[in-house]
Amino acid sequence: MGKYAKIFSLAVVLGLAIFLAVVAGDYGPWYFAWLVGTTMIVLIAAAGAVLFDTQEERGEREI
C-alpha cells in the first residue's frame, strides 16, 4: 500500500471514529463508553503482560 493510500485510509478511519463518537455521544453515551472502555481495558491488560515480560528480561521479577 502506498504512502498516500495509507494516509487516506487512516483519514477515513479517523473520520468514521469521529462520526461514531458524535452520533453515539448524542444517542447512546453509555454504549459509546462501553466501546471505548472495553478497548481500553483490553489494551491495558495487554500492556501489563508486555511490561511483565520486560521486567522479567531485566531480571526484576520474582513474582
Partner: peptide, 29 residues
C-alpha cells in the same frame, strides 16, 4: 505453572481494576 500464572494474574488484575471501577460508576448511573 508460574510463567502462565504470573502473566495471567497480572493481566486479570489490570483488567479487573478498571472493570470494577466502571461497574461502580454504572451502578451510580
Amino acid at each position: 505453572h508460574v510463567a502462565l500464572a504470573g502473566r495471567s494474574f497480572r493481566m486479570a488484575a489490570l483488567f479487573g481494576v478498571i472493570s470494577s471501577m466502571a461497574v461502580v460508576t454504572l451502578g451510580d448511573a
